[in-house]
Design a protein around this nucleic acid. Sequence first.
DNA 1: TATTGTTATACTCTATAACTATA
DNA 2: TATAGTTATAGAGTATAACAATA
Lengths: 151, 151
Amino acid sequence: MVRMSDREARLVDSRHLTQMLIEVAEHAKSDLAEVVAPFDLPVPVARALLVLAEPTPMRELAAQLNWDPSYITGIADQLEDRGLVVRVPGKDRRIKLLEVTAGGRAIRDQVADALMRRAPTAQRLDDTERVQLAHLLERLLGRHPSADPAP
Amino acid sequence: MVRMSDREARLVDSRHLTQMLIEVAEHAKSDLAEVVAPFDLPVPVARALLVLAEPTPMRELAAQLNWDPSYITGIADQLEDRGLVVRVPGKDRRIKLLEVTAGGRAIRDQVADALMRRAPTAQRLDDTERVQLAHLLERLLGRHPSADPAP
DNA sequence: TATTGTTATACTCTATAACTATA
DNA sequence: TATAGTTATAGAGTATAACAATA
């Protein structure tokens, strides 16, 4: 048997984990692509729609998705062209909030639903595992995960 | 307090998890980009190099990375131009194996090392957590994870 | 005829830089 | 002068389709 140093074993592990993480994310994206194809939604447009909960300044949406703010303009245009969101001016008139329309909510819910039906995170993991995964991912993202939510 | 159905809660969870998975993978990619910049290696070229353990048919490499086989040609070209791999003909003369050169191994090890020094999977998780994560990712990828390796 | 790798090309996603309007 | 959004453009990453060589 070939003996590995701890450091080496950790290195291999880490590479393997990274490779798997990328793989999983890529599956997630191609799942999304397949799900949204019938809606004629480009993937980034769908991602933005899925993330938009309440009226959000464009800048903030960019931050949430780790996108350059300039990129949001085009996404917002596409969402607006499809009638899924509207740009509403903020109090500070430089700011524009993206607000999901009723139609947008309808589409978003359909997409979210179809997505859940095939998302491996929903299909292949039980509740315990989902909690575990959330915990680990939060660690990886450098968010200190508060121990446990109140019951 | 707003009451959510189980189904709804699971849906939100699953969306959130997917979003985090994508985020983590994107970090991984940009980490890789920064690490390989000094080596003047494009990210996909580096990914291929990191994955190439033993001489591998180009087709097989494509499968390992979930890439279209046609894409490998260009990657292999770049690896060869840099002297990091050579194409060696297989017994079946249609097949070409990519074999990492000594120089390629040197670069690959440097890259892997630099990568480990900043990979969150190496830096922010302990051994137990890495095992947990590997387990979960394997489930997500639909690989049946064998219970536990012999001691 | 089916399979491997190659070529040419086109498409999607995202960032950068320079700009306009408001603060 | 700093900040929000916009425009135009460029680049990276990847796929598709038609092809040549070998089986």
